[in-house]
Design a protein around this nucleic acid. Sequence first.
DNA 1: AATGAATGAGGATTCATTCAT
DNA 2: TATGAATGAATCCTCATTCAT
Lengths: 191, 191, 191, 191
Amino acid sequence: MSPRTSKQFEEIREIRKKQIMDVAMYLFAEKGYSNTSISLIATKAKISKGLLYNYFTSKEDLLIHIFEEGIQEMLSFFDPNKDGVLTRDEFIFFIHETFNLMSRKISFYKLYFSLVMQPSVWSVFEKKFAEIITPLIKMLTAYYKNKGSKNPEAEAVLMGSLLDGIGFNYVFNPSLYPIEQVKEMVIKRFV
Amino acid sequence: MSPRTSKQFEEIREIRKKQIMDVAMYLFAEKGYSNTSISLIATKAKISKGLLYNYFTSKEDLLIHIFEEGIQEMLSFFDPNKDGVLTRDEFIFFIHETFNLMSRKISFYKLYFSLVMQPSVWSVFEKKFAEIITPLIKMLTAYYKNKGSKNPEAEAVLMGSLLDGIGFNYVFNPSLYPIEQVKEMVIKRFV
Amino acid sequence: MSPRTSKQFEEIREIRKKQIMDVAMYLFAEKGYSNTSISLIATKAKISKGLLYNYFTSKEDLLIHIFEEGIQEMLSFFDPNKDGVLTRDEFIFFIHETFNLMSRKISFYKLYFSLVMQPSVWSVFEKKFAEIITPLIKMLTAYYKNKGSKNPEAEAVLMGSLLDGIGFNYVFNPSLYPIEQVKEMVIKRFV
Amino acid sequence: MSPRTSKQFEEIREIRKKQIMDVAMYLFAEKGYSNTSISLIATKAKISKGLLYNYFTSKEDLLIHIFEEGIQEMLSFFDPNKDGVLTRDEFIFFIHETFNLMSRKISFYKLYFSLVMQPSVWSVFEKKFAEIITPLIKMLTAYYKNKGSKNPEAEAVLMGSLLDGIGFNYVFNPSLYPIEQVKEMVIKRFV
DNA sequence: AATGAATGAGGATTCATTCAT
DNA sequence: TATGAATGAATCCTCATTCAT
């Protein structure tokens, strides 16, 4: 039989990588990074421990890949490299997208909330994250300034905190959180 | 010298216990629960590992004691077992106290945020925590209802989320967060 | 194009085998046998791990082949199966050859010195090696006896040790070792 | 019962440390550093794996301690920080001591020979070792110069190589090596 | 009350070897 | 012939917990 082509190998790698990352993200989110063993990830992903290291050089490397993928997805929504100006409609759209992402990516959000508080781990992501958040806050600040707010910086920070807080409470117990009503209220009160 | 009375012994015990808990809370908050070893806690608290087990039956037991103490302190502020009605002044006082607590108990808040997301750990505290939060949300709901809000439940939840979000962002980077301005804005907009 | 003959295949196999052995010998010598992974050998030899096992049945088998080849080369120089008598000129020639071999086969000598001390590994080669060394020592003994030495056995052993010691120090740091002067001195003092 | 005094603890530590180092040196020498597992060392020393790490921070740390202890013992013999001049009697004494050490510390010599050839490990000891060898070679050079040798440097190097070679062959098979006769011959020919 | 030596289960990681293609 | 994905045993190391003194 002829050997596999390198394209075939590439496909296998992509599938496996995705499979491992999905399982790991879920477990990291549910049990915490430290409490999730490589052994468990391998078992749940139905592969051997050794194979995992064929795809990721370490447990931390796996975490980083998961995080970067999650962040890329965020970026694709919030990427403000247009004119840097937020219209009212764009703001509303942005809020809808944020809430959407929250419910579609619960595991990622959980992971995010559980990692931010651990300096040893978070320091790895800090810079990457700042690259997303800083322009966002700036845009919000500009929006509120334009609207005539007396303290647009604080208002932007408040908005950011609110979204974090909602996310935090929502992912903690999605089925009980009145997400739709809260969203409406956010739009009414903060846009 | 007369032998120490049992009361004196009890006092010594309490002091030591507090000393261990303070060190442990700080380390848990800064490094994460899993990443903090009993050995390190004992060293930093200037006692032996063995002695620590004389005061706490296990690492988890130590965590629980820390958490309960933190919660007790919260309760002492928010305890609404008066008439269950929140006046405007009481609400403002409550917000001030919450922000105060945040800045005085940064470690505890960090610990709180890092543990909430881990079901295996959080399940231990969940019930205790619900006992505090539920009446709080109810009081807030009543407050907003009284104020004529169309959707008082959602408004109460939003308020709770906002406070969490502010805490989350504040303890993450206290020196950069515009805590006073945000507090003013919360009072102006939500009371 | 005509299909390759089995002789051509055989030639290709031999070339590849040599190529793998060269890379492996170098790595074994530089990093040690245990610290050199099959993976690394395959990468450096620009073949796949799987293919390596097509040529050698195991890592140890690879080592054995390398060693035997090295020993064969030694044998071809020192092979005393003529008359078993060493003349003065033959002795001098032998010393020159030994020093030549040393500098041309540094990797092999390094490997030799690092393996001799490990019984678990060395036991495999011991017998083979004795087959070379024993007649050599005998010939030297005869030479010194003929020369009128009082203790020709000890002198032969001393000579053997000296050559080992020179090799040991030389391959450890070839550029700093005054190999030529040492060679002259050996000839002057021991022939 | 009263707790152990810190002196008692110190005694326990010293005994255990020695016990572990003895076992480890023997095993490292017989099987090689890489082929000796911490597990085996612990088993042979009749302690748990964990305890070993109470005394040495890593496998390499254990090796370093063994090596340094061995080197200290060497130093105590060869330490030339008197006048730096070697008389004939001192030279003879030095040779006797070297041969003595060889037979009393076979394991250490084996370890030495097996480590020198592995750059990754040896680099750790290189400097320490140079500190011993360099002044030795200098003294020998001075000795031969004084004796009227035409090439005292090469002669000193030759002597160093000879001792290494004798050690190498001797520790490899102590019972068969004619150590006494070789020693006499070395003294007669090289002093 | 107090110490830290001692244990052993569990965790991350490596690597020789196999095998489907 | 040739590839590299896949396995799993073995390795180093950590750490909560126990216990003799």
